[in-house]
């Protein structure tokens, strides 16, 4: 595996993790309606990125497919949802939401840097197929970064001063 392969694998891993984090956080914060709905939409982008990465890697003889996800995460999802609803009338989960937003921001930023690396490599090797994938996906990753940043800006004042 060459360096591009390593970067593809790292990014694919990052996109899978980000999708999972968005979905888990959406369940954890069911009562934060805007966060919950938009996080679900943004998880879809990471899933699509994964699909595209698998395809572009396959063209290069690289297998990025993961074993299908196990059931335990679905069981956990129900627990997370019920826990969210039970504590929905307390202010402390706001802190947890800020923590989740911070982690999502960092995870999306990490993916953004990997897209950047792939874009540079694709240009250096005139790999138009890869460049096409990057130019489709990277803007969406940047939008994930901007959204988490906007949410942190908007919610921090109330969460941190309203305890």
């Amino acid at each position: 595996m060459n360096g591009v392969g390593l970067a593809l694998r790292a990014l694919d891993h990052g996109e899978r993790r980000l999708e999972h984090r968005f979905l888990a956080a959406a369940q954890r914060h069911r009562t934060e309606h805007e966060f919950c709905h938009v996080a679900g939409d943004l998880a879809r982008w990471s899933r699509e990125h994964h699909t595209r990465l698998v395809a572009v890697a396959a063209q290069r003889g690289l297998n990025l497919r993961w074993p299908s996800s196990n059931r335990s995460s679905d069981l956990l999802a129900g627990v997370r949802t019920r826990a969210a609803e039970a504590v929905g009338r307390r202010p402390e989960p706001g802190l947890l939401l800020l923590r989740d937003l911070r982690e999502l921001y960092l995870a999306a930023s990490r993916n953004s840097l990997h897209w950047e690396m792939l874009a540079q490599a694709a240009q250096a090797t005139r790999d138009t197929g890869l460049l096409d994938v990057v130019s489709r996906c990277h803007p969406q990753t940047l939008r994930q970064v901007r959204w988490t940043n906007t949410m942190i800006k908007t919610l921090s004042p109330q969460v941190l001063t309203g305890l």
Binding site: T31, G88, P91, P93, G94, Q158, T161, G162
Partner: peptide
């Protein structure tokens, strides 16, 4: 939502 969570 802020009222629900108790900060408003």
């Amino acid at each position: 939502r802020f009222a629900e969570a108790g900060s408003l």
